[in-house]
Amino acid sequence: MTGAVFLETYKQTWKQMVYWGLGLAALGLLVVVMVPLFDMQQMKELLESFPPFILAMVGVGNDLEVFATNEGFVAIGFFGKSALVFAVYPVVMGMRITADEEDNGIMDMQLSLPVQRMRLVIEKFAAYSVSIVGLVVMIYLGMYAGVAISGIELDMARLTEVTFYLVPVMIFIMAVTMVIAAIIRRRQIALGLMTAYIIVSFMLQTIGAAAEGTIAESIGSVSFFTYYNAANIMTDGFVAAHLVGFFGLSALFLAAAVYRYERRDIGV
């Protein structure tokens, strides 16, 4: 039956999605509730005394005016600082598409069923994508509750934009993980490579942001973190081309993973 793999995958995942969602929603709520406790002007003056590299490291960037607003504080304090945390969930899900089940031998049972490898990969990818949407909805609800509790003024349309922009980014990370696992086959090696990719991307973006006008900035543009700048989205909205880029690359990686997975031996 079409959709059976999707349903089963989702059934096996929803609890973890809820746990992750509760944790991240609580974190978001906390950041929003903390907004009235800070004097933004004082904070801006303090940060002005920091060297640009340090500001880039903590995700503030060069535009301190943005940080002095409620929107900027939330964007940088939550979305900017938690960028690496947001990357963990899609990596875990990406590993589950093929690598985990191949590594622990479950894939032999899955593929003894009348299901094409392509269908298996696509349905699992879809199920985990839905779980990412669910996770982001929970994060949004946490922040929405924070706004209601603290009573701060926040551009809710922009908050919605920056929160839901996590969906294509997380799906992209999941797709990269999946394609690496499909090519490499060995779970531990794939996980190591993916971790390295995320850390290097983060470093490139940080260095690039701190060294405007240099070659480091150009190199930083290779990092996917460069295209998820929460502060910019909060102030100017998201860039449609970036959104298309994330979804387009995810689709490309999905196709590459299916292609590779269809043609190689299943590991044990």
Partner: peptide, 23 residues
């Protein structure tokens, strides 16, 4: 298979139902 591995957190009934659904 010689070494049967299944999802440890799922019950026998859940796995039976899933595999029956795919079939």
């Amino acid at each position: 298979p010689a070494e049967l591995n299944l999802w440890p957190g799922r019950t026998g009934n859940q796995i039976i139902y899933y595999m029956a659904s795919v079939r």
